[in-house]
């Protein structure tokens, strides 16, 4: 579904991606793990059209989307849940969700009410808080809102940038449980995550990104038992996991 080939992006004059190649097959859940500053967010933002690459291509469903502006990429169903959630704080929970519907564009104009209901059944707390300002939600609730907002656009590929960042372990687990539910429904997902243990446990395939390069790739289970990965990313006492 998504094919990224030799993608290179410079950001503020610094080369952040140095020829990244990866693919996300339909129906799979793929992780990108790597340390802070490896270029993970840059990669997602380049795929999304927020940043312009200086080399390489991004193909989505066979179509070249490399130089498409961000809003057109989103309308194709290639939706990103950005790092830090980026909830529109002064807008209500419901308004945030309704804005998410725009990305659906020309795809499937039917069943308007059903989408809201589907999001509310996945995240019941959002139904309770629907009239509240998005900015008044807790971090975990905001992450749910951000995911729900993207789901409103009926993503063909859902990209998530550090969905567990800054969340309590309980909240992080809830978010990952929701992702597992989506995966079980056949949602294609590309997950960027610093918490490698959690990412490898919940995905089919993973890429390791370091200093703008893919240094390793393979089935998530295989990577999770790879000695190099264990020593670098899965320390015995990982304080961020519990």
């Amino acid at each position: 579904m998504l094919e990224v080939t030799d993608l290179a992006t410079a950001y503020d004059g610094i080369t952040a991606l140095r020829g990244v190649t990866l693919r996300v097959p339909t129906g799979s859940m793929v992780a990108i793990v790597g340390p802070n500053g490896a270029g993970k967010s840059t990669l997602l933002n380049t795929i999304s059209g927020v940043l312009r690459p200086h080399a390489g291509t991004v193909r989505f469903d066979g179509a070249d989307v490399t130089r498409l502006p961000a809003h057109k990429v989103a309308r194709l169903g290639l939706l990103q849940v950005p790092e830090g959630r980026q909830i529109l704080g002064p807008l209500s929970v419901e308004e945030n969700l309704l804005l998410g519907r725009l990305a659906r564009g020309a795809r499937a104009a039917d069943g308007t009410a059903d989408d809201l209901d589907a999001v509310f059944s996945l995240f019941p707390i959002l139904a309770e808080r629907r009239r509240q300002e998005g900015g008044s939600l807790s971090g975990g609730q905001q992450q749910m809102l951000a995911i729900g907002r993207a789901l409103m656009g009926r993503p063909r590929l859902l990209m998530l940038d550090e969905p567990s960042l800054g969340l309590s372990p309980i909240m992080a687990r809830q978010v990952f449980d929701a992702l597992a539910t989506l995966k079980a429904r056949g949602q294609t997902i590309l997950l960027v995550e610093q918490n490698a243990r959690r990412a490898l446990a919940s995905t089919d395939f993973a890429y390791v990104l370091e200093q703008g390069r893919i240094v390793q790739e393979g089935p998530s289970a295989a990577l999770a038992s790879d000695p190099r990965i264990i020593s670098h990313y899965l320390p015995e006492t990982d304080l961020s996991t519990s």
Binding site: V50, A70, H71, A74, R75, G89, L99, R149
Partner: peptide, 17 residues
């Protein structure tokens, strides 16, 4: 809603389509 979204964050608005 779109106007208010753009007023708050152009990047987030673009990511929403």
């Amino acid at each position: 809603r779109q106007i208010r979204a753009v007023a708050i964050s152009e990047r987030t608005a673009a990511l929403l389509g």
